[in-house]
Design a protein around this nucleic acid. Structure first.
Length: 590
RNA sequence: GGGGGCGUAGAACAGCCUGGAGUGUUCGCCAGCCUGUCAAGCUGGAGGUCGCGGGUUCAAAUCCCGUCGUCCCCGCCA
């Protein structure tokens, strides 16, 4: 016998009169006694099968998600019974033979998209969850997106190269996932946070144009857009300027967008400098689908009597505001906004409601002069019914707080519109507890080496991020190809020569053998597909994601290993861990 | 590490504020009926450790404390 001659999606009016065999799952059974209908779902779609129970009595044994193979003739549906919702809705298969290939237990949850099932349960039965139309569509979309990206890069002459995933740990940046070595007990590999240094080595190796759809690992806490393991499009080119990198990335983003959305992304994408992004949107990953831009109000309040504002200005801070638009704030909502502002790092938040007569209602209204009020209204272009928010603080804090509130209040739901942009001219270093750390990664080239030497705090880097609808897709840069400059960066970062030699000596050596100027980029495939598929979590576009605590409910990983496995690796659990685990086991009462 | 939401039948929920018998809705499951449905329909039925532990009370799904799980956020994520 033959399980299948056709996929369901290939059946239409043109197939009427032919004999076909389809195979798939019973999505629905509608049994009318004298006639029964089956919706048969395969990897591509659904087709209706009509069964005469007098000829095929075992149709009443069928339940949801049985796998079956059905042979029969394709017929046009009788007039008035066409289903326009279904791609194959014009036709149906009149069953001549019906084979049950495999039965199915009653399902833990329904496989339609009509209710939100608890995510833990979905993950425990992910193999069923992935049968749901939306998830199956997400899987296919992801595959099509990566295929489009591969085609684009292949056409541009890129080489797809795999780099190792058991590598040396570099204790910078995110926490490394570690893998103990059996052959050298006490030593550890790390899983890569990105193929960064290997792709730079490939440039030194003369590969010139490299890409990889690379699995990366960062052992930090989970979010709706963050998993410990995730996938990036990673690429690098030699003899490249920033423009070359950006053009290539734009081509891959446009290809994926066209594939999944059927729309052309206008390129080149808009570019904002980091400073402008911060000043106008209060974040380095602005969502420019809406306005509500931040305004500098320092001028308005230069001689204010209001203590909070005056203090902020005196201590070198700033006063920024935004017009949150037509919005009536209840007492509870006002408290909520203030709490949120504090969560974002503010000491407080000033709100003002523009009343119908133009007067300002606010807890601080009594501290403001008429001149200040009118300047404020003018600066924020405030109209009757508008809600105004003001933060007075250090530059970065004030902007970050307003940027966060702007997103909370104005951000469009979903991702029906797409707004890509570049953020460029990032600072090379940022200050943290009075110490300089790299704001990108330590292999990023400064815009000017002289500037880096003379005033590192304000030096710019040749790094750039690409942002989509306020989500950071990824970042790249022109790299340092001069070992002397690379050493100098380490020095500015407070990594002494000896430490740099120990950690990165092998890389500094490599730079000495004719390194081409080079640069590259990496962006998150999961995040891109999430947005293009209008999902709000990357878990929806990952086949087997983990929960927020890093657990896979399907396989119950992570899990303990045998004592003998640990012994082979020269590893012993710390006594307090061992004790806690034994107590937990005892408490389970097994 | 911190803040918040949620946890009630196989699934999704309501009930909790204001304590009084495991009460209810939709889907699924089981049995029967049914010849044009497509979330088929009709009739009947089964199914519950109200996450877990403790406390308050004559009485707890409901109030309090703790704990576990999960989701969202802050920190963290070069």
């Amino acid at each position: 016998m033959q399980y299948r001659t056709h996929f369901t999606r290939d059946l239409d009016a043109g197939a009427v009169g032919t004999n076909v065999t389809v195979a798939g799952w019973v999505a629905r059974r509608r049994d009318h006694g004298g006639i029964a209908f089956l919706d048969i779902r395969d990897g591509q779609g659904i087709v209706q099968v009509v069964v005469d129970p007098t000829q095929l009595p075992h149709v009443d044994e069928l339940r949801m998600e049985f796998t079956v193979s059905v042979e029969g003739s394709v017929e046009l549906r009788p007039e008035g019974t066409v289903n326009p919702e279904l791609a194959t809705g014009e036709i149906e298969i009149r069953a001549a033979q019906l084979d049950v290939l495999s039965p199915a237990d009653p399902l833990p949850f329904m496989l339609d998209d009509r209710t939100d099932i608890d995510e833990r349960l979905r993950l425990e039965y992910r193999y069923l969850d992935l049968r749901r139309p939306r998830m199956a569509d997400n899987l296919r979309a992801r595959s099509r997106a990566t295929a489009a990206i591969r085609r684009t890069l292949d056409d541009l002459g890129f080489l797809e190269v795999e780099t190792p995933t058991l590598i040396r740990s570099t204790p910078e940046g995110a926490r490394d996932m570690l893998v103990p070595s059996r052959l050298r007990p006490g030593d550890f590999y790390a899983l890569p946070q990105s193929p960064q240094l290997f792709k730079q080595l490939l440039m030194i190796a003369g590969v010139e144009r490299y890409f990889q759809i690379a699995r990366c690992y960062r052992d930090e806490d989970f979010r709706s857009d963050r998993q410990v393991e995730f996938t990036q499009l990673d690429l690098e080119g030699s003899f490249w300027t920033a423009e070359d990198v950006q053009t290539t990335i734009e081509a891959t983003l446009a290809a994926a967008t066209r594939e999944l959305r059927g729309v052309d992304v206008p390129t080149p994408l808009p570019r904002l400098t980091w400073r402008e992004a911060m000043e106008r949107f209060g974040t380095d990953k602005p969502d420019i689908r809406f306005g509500m831009e931040i305004v500098d109000l320092s001028e308005v309040f230069t001689s204010t009597e209001f203590g909070v504002f005056a203090n902020s200005l005196q201590s070198g801070g700033t006063i920024r505001g935004l017009n949150a638009g037509q919005r009536h704030l209840s007492r509870a909502e006002a408290d909520g906004l203030i709490d949120r502002a504090k969560e974002l790092g503010a000491k407080g938040l000033v709100w003002l409601q523009v009343e119908e007569d133009g007067a300002l209602r606010s807890p601080v209204a009594k501290f403001l002069t008429a001149t200040e009020e009118s300047s404020l209204v003018k600066a924020l272009d405030a109209k009757s019914g508008d809600l105004l928010l003001i933060a007075a603080d250090r530059w970065k804090t004030a902007l970050t707080v307003l940027g966060g509130l702007r997103n909370d209040l104005g951000r469009p739901q979903g991702h029906s519109d797409l707004a890509y942009l570049w953020v460029v001219d990032f600072p090379l270093f940022e200050e943290e507890d009075g110490k300089l750390t790299f704001s990108h990664h330590p292999f990023t080239a400064p815009t000017s080496i002289d500037e880096m030497r003379s005033s590192p705090e304000s030096a710019l880097s040749q790094a750039y991020d690409v942002v989509l609808n306020g989500i950071e897709l990824g970042s790249g840069s022109i790299r340092i190809h001069d070992p002397a400059v690379q050493r100098q960066v380490f020095e500015i970062l407070g990594i002494d020569a000896e430490t740099a030699e120990r950690r990165f000596g092998w890389f500094l050596d490599a730079l000495r053998y004719g390194t081409p100027p080079h640069g590259g980029f990496a962006f998150g495939i999961d995040r891109l597909v999430m947005v293009l598929q209008e999902e709000t979590s990357i878990r929806e576009v990952m086949p087997f994601p983990k929960t927020q605590t890093g657990v896979d409910p399907l396989t119950d990983a992570p899990a303990p290993v045998e004592e003998s496995q640990l012994a082979e690796l020269g590893i012993e659990l710390r006594p307090e861990i061992k004790k806690a685990r034994e107590q937990a086991d005892g408490g389970a009462g097994e």
